[in-house]
């Protein structure tokens, strides 16, 4: 009897929780359809850029003077450092944004909640994706379109397309199985993050005739345990390091660290390399350079 009562009492909150979740899901689904192209702002542009890759695109399209604010993480080109800062992806400062009186905000799909707040104040918002190479091209072209720089945008996109085409022609000595490490603590082998499926780094590897060993994975940038790495056993490891790191030193360090794992194909053959530069991890207009650097590296691997 006691149990029966307990069961009945437990049900009613469960039902109400389920109902609430259902309503929220319906509301969210309803909001999904509200996406439309933002109107082109009138008068002189005052652009706020909320991601390092969009900042790079804006400056490359000659819109540097129109940019009024950037994030704390926009470090390229150097002129971007002189612009007003409005926080980052996780800590946006809404007041600082409004104070800059922008009439166009360029941001990422991840900023959706923020985008709604800006739109509610009649500020034009352009959300551009930045995961794949196609995303980068699309970002360049749609920013060019809305800011009246279509021709420069087309030229920039074409230069990236030609870098892609020439990378396709270059065939490596072998269809190497590659692992791209985007983050690893210095001298450590715990907390290794790699490029997974749906990332432009995965595409770059395929483009130059390699296979990304983490091309099948649950996350786009999964954390890779040592056992998992041994299981997938890459023949080539390429580590990406930030600007300011000496790639020669970083390569030496990586080779020493990975050699601690016996049976790892890349470590045994010494096919471990480090590339340095922030452009490697910013899916922006410098992606052509990233492709060229990967191609050059692949040409050397024997």
């Amino acid at each position: 009897m006691k149990e029966l009562l307990l069961t009945r009492r437990c049900w009613s909150p469960l039902v109400s929780v389920a109902a609430t979740v259902g309503v929220i899901v319906l509301l969210l689904a309803g909001c999904e359809g509200a996406k439309e192209a933002p109107p082109i702002p009138e008068g002189a542009l005052r652009i706020l850029s909320l991601s390092p890759n969009t900042t790079e695109i804006l400056f490359r399209l000659g819109l540097g003077d129109e940019v009024v604010g950037v994030t704390d993480f926009c470090r390229y080109p150097p002129e971007a450092l002189e612009k007003a800062k409005v926080g980052g992806l996780l800590n946006p400062n809404l007041e600082a944004m409004f104070a800059l009186e922008p009439n166009l905000v360029v941001l990422l799909p991840a900023h959706e909640v923020l985008a709604r707040k800006l739109q509610s104040q009649k500020i034009a918002v352009l959300a551009v994706p930045n995961d794949t190479m196609a995303d980068v091209l699309e970002s360049i072209e749609s920013i060019g379109r809305i800011a009246g720089r279509s021709e420069r945008a087309a030229a920039l996109a074409d230069s990236i397309r030609s870098a892609i085409e020439s990378a396709k022609k270059m065939k490596p000595t072998q269809p190497w199985r590659v692992m791209i490490v985007v983050d690893r603590p210095r001298r450590g082998l715990a907390g290794i993050f790699v490029a997974g499926p749906g990332t432009y780094l995965d595409e770059v590897v395929q483009l130059i005739g390699g296979t990304n060993v983490f091309g099948q994975s649950l996350a786009r940038y999964p954390e890779a345990g040592i056992e998992e790495i041994l299981f997938r056993n890459p023949q080539v490891i390429i580590e990406l390091r930030p600007s300011g790191v000496d790639p020669v030193e970083a390569t030496e360090e990586a080779r020493i660290v990975w050699r601690r794992i016996p049976g790892l194909s890349a470590a045994e053959s010494g096919r471990i390399y480090a590339l340095a530069g922030d452009h490697l991890v910013v899916p922006g207009p410098r992606i052509g350079r990233t492709i060229e650097e990967f191609s050059a590296l692949f040409g050397e691997i024997r």
Binding site: G88, L90, N91, D183, G191, F193, E223
Partner: peptide, 15 residues
Amino acid sequence: AQYMADFTQTFRMVH
């Protein structure tokens, strides 16, 4: 600290 950190740093702290 998490709020002030870079995206990847925050990620590592949460992990």
